[in-house]
Amino acid sequence: MDDGTIKEVNTADCSGFTPAPGIEVDVFSAENKVIVSKKAVPFSANQPHKVNKIAYVLLAFFLGGIGIHKFYAGHIILGFIYLIFCWTFIPGFIAFIEFIIGLCKTADEQGNIQV
């Protein structure tokens, strides 16, 4: 709760989601009924995305010069920037560095990395 107290509720009171540690929620109570809803998280373009490590590094190596790995990772604006400047070969060099960085990152249990 906002005041630092903890309120125990049934999962049936959660409107359409499964609660897990770290999820921010809004709690509404009226008389003897409690409603828990997941707090809306604003979209951030700089927010890291989880992607499959193998797919990401292969796309960065083979098609990184035109930004395909950025599109795959959900960084659409960066993907367009790579695509626009691909004729300079600078995005290709940056993609090769990102390929090496991606190879060095440790994948989680599902084989995903944050980019």
Rank of each mutant, 00 (worst) to 15 (best):
D3S: 11
A12G: 09
D3C: 01
T106H: 03
A107Q: 08
C14H: 01
V27C: 05
I68M: 09
A107R: 04
D26T: 10
V41Y: 03
Q110E: 15
V51P: 05
G4M: 01
H75Q: 15
D3Y: 00
I76L: 13
C86D: 05
S29E: 13
W87V: 15
I66V: 14
Q114G: 03
G65C: 08
A95P: 11
T5F: 00
V41G: 05
L103G: 12
G79A: 03
I23P: 00
F85I: 01
L83V: 01
I68D: 02
A30G: 08
I100Y: 10
K50H: 06
K38F: 02
G22A: 04
A40I: 13
G92K: 02
I100H: 03
E24H: 08
G16E: 08
I94W: 10
I6V: 15
V27G: 02
I113P: 07
H75K: 15
P19R: 00
S44H: 12
D2K: 13
I23H: 01
I54D: 10
Q110T: 10
A40S: 12
F62I: 11
V34H: 03
D13H: 04
T11Q: 10
L103A: 09
L58A: 11
N52S: 13
L103H: 01
E8C: 00
V9N: 05
S37G: 01
L63Q: 07
I100E: 04
Q110R: 12
A107Y: 07
A40F: 12
I90Y: 04
K38G: 04
L103R: 02
N10Q: 12
E109S: 14
I100S: 07
W87P: 11
D13W: 04
G102P: 08
I100G: 03
P19D: 01
W87C: 11
F43A: 15
F99E: 09
S44M: 05
I84N: 01
N112R: 10
I113K: 07
P19F: 09
A55M: 09
L63F: 15
G4E: 05
F71T: 04
F43Q: 11
T18R: 02
A30S: 14
K70N: 09
G92T: 12
W87S: 11
G67Y: 04
W87K: 00
K53N: 05
F61N: 07
L78T: 11
N52T: 01
H75S: 13
F99Q: 07
G74C: 09
T11G: 00
V115W: 09
P91W: 03
G111Y: 05
A40V: 14
F62Q: 06
A60P: 02
G111I: 08
I113N: 09
